[in-house]
Design a protein around this nucleic acid. Sequence first.
DNA 1: GTTCTCACA
DNA 2: TGTGAGAA
Length: 110
Amino acid sequence: MSANHDQQMYYDFDLLSKLVVGIGEVADITGVPTRKIRYWEDKGIVRSVQEADGSTRRYDYLNIKKIVLVQELLEDGYTLDAAARKVEDRMKNINDIFQKIADKQNTPQP
DNA sequence: GTTCTCACA
DNA sequence: TGTGAGAA
């Protein structure tokens, strides 16, 4: 990983933005049971997207990431609400930072 | 395989 | 904070 950071990153974003998987696969990969994922969704901690035809839950990479992060915080002794708040704050901060970077690139200084 | 609800710890 | 069971 040296000469083509840009191209490598492009493929990563392209893959991640298209990554939408069903609840069963999320459960298998993350180790969080489907039952628990639905429970979190009922509490408003994660959100699933649904296809027009099917009624099954599907999760994009941001929500999968959320599931993993919340799970880690729970293992560290956080309550569910505290873990959810912390994850939400961290993801918002990251989003804000990249937003600033994007803004800076769109308005070059003279 | 998925969904929901009710009950239980 | 989660799980089990039953039914669709």
